[in-house]
């Protein structure tokens, strides 16, 4: 029996809008094993970031269970939640807006340690900051620098150091490299991977960039309009994508090699509205293979070991 650190069951988040309920996250379930990485992939508006924030209860879910190390996060009181958050951290997408511009690197990294009273004396805190800065590869001279003086890569290292400060077991990385240049992106990805190996961290890796998620994840869940449409181990998903949306998504990645570009599967139109989406397959309006049966929402079914797809026409096309 695999050691499950996080289990999400039927997680749902609706937002009330003037035109009706916005289905941001619509009944999704998955499990994450300790020390592994789950990639959550999708385009803007598919609900992947909301999923991440709901798991940490930065956004209150509408319904569903989030079981982290045996505790249902949804049922915790504010105090218990604050305690539980020491084990669950978030790395933000934009290292420009996720660091308080009026605080120095030292203050930023020590904040989680001081507020949670993890270490008592000032000397201990300073020791720990020094250790964390070395771990994420920030030069000593940046100790009292302000974030606006630093480039994106270094800022993201600060964000990582903050997340690590409380020695969490599980980190949600919300597009941690999409604001960075490619050469810096590789530095950060390598750092995250090293840290995972050293500290045995479990990750949920949220991204729109399939080449990055492929590199990083053990398992990938593809989201579309609040639903998981396909979930499989990374190799399996890339070798044998089954859902029409996954196929289109994979073929749309520009590949930096001559002659490597596969025939693009262009999907028509744009993502439809997440407000009151009805009971048809979420991808129905854009799907090249849509038929009458697709007016009914398909369930996520296991088509081969560990490979789940939500599509009526699997095996037909």
């Amino acid at each position: 029996m695999a050691d499950t650190i996080l289990e999400v069951k039927n997680l749902t988040k609706y937002f009330k809008t003037k035109r009706g309920m916005l289905h941001a996250v619509d009944d999704i379930s998955f499990k994450l094993e300790r020390g592994k990485t789950l990639g959550l992939v999708g385009e803007s508006g598919c609900g992947k970031s909301t999923t991440g924030r709901t798991i940490l209860r930065l956004i209150e879910p509408t319904s569903g269970e989030i079981i982290f190390e045996g505790k249902d996060i949804n049922k915790l009181s504010n105090r218990e939640l604050r305690h539980a958050r020491k084990d669950m951290q978030l790395i933000f997408q934009d290292p420009y807006s996720s660091l308080d511009p009026r605080k120095t690197v030292n203050q930023l990294i020590s904040e989680p340690i001081v507020t949670n009273k993890i270490l008592k004396t000032k000397a201990e805190v300073e020791e720990r900051v020094a250790e964390l800065m070395a771990t994420v590869g920030l030069a000593p001279r940046l100790f009292n620098s302000y974030p606006h003086e630093l480039d994106g890569g270094r800022r993201q290292r600060i964000g990582i150091a903050r997340a690590l400060a409380m020695e969490p077991k599980f980190i949600i990385c919300d597009e941690p490299v999409s604001a960075l240049d490619v050469s810096i992106q590789a530095q950060i990805l390598n750092l995250l991977k090293e840290l995972q190996g050293e500290l045995g961290l479990s990750f949920i890796f949220i991204t729109h960039d399939l080449s990055v998620v492929n590199h990083f994840s053990d398992e990938i869940a593809v989201m579309y309009l609040g639903k998981i449409v396909e979930k499989a181990p990374s190799e399996e998903l890339f070798a044998n994508p089954m859902h029409p949306y996954t196929k289109a998504l994979l073929s749309a990645i520009p590949i930096p090699e001559l002659g490597a570009q596969k025939e693009r599967i262009l999907i028509k139109g744009e993502i439809s509205s997440p407000i009151e989406p009805g009971n048809e397959c979420r991808f129905y309006k854009r799907c090249n293979y849509a038929c009458d049966r697709c007016r009914e929402l398909p369930a996520l079914e296991e088509v081969s070991p560990n490979h789940f797809v939500a599509c009526h026409r699997i095996g037909e096309v």
Binding site: S183, A186, N214
Partner: peptide, 19 residues
């Protein structure tokens, strides 16, 4: 360096080589 920094979609185990 630019080419080496990119994750290779066909070889997911390869370590990235940043500049």
């Amino acid at each position: 360096g630019l080419f080496n920094s990119l994750p290779n979609i066909n070889d997911r185990k390869a370590m990235l080589t940043p500049i």
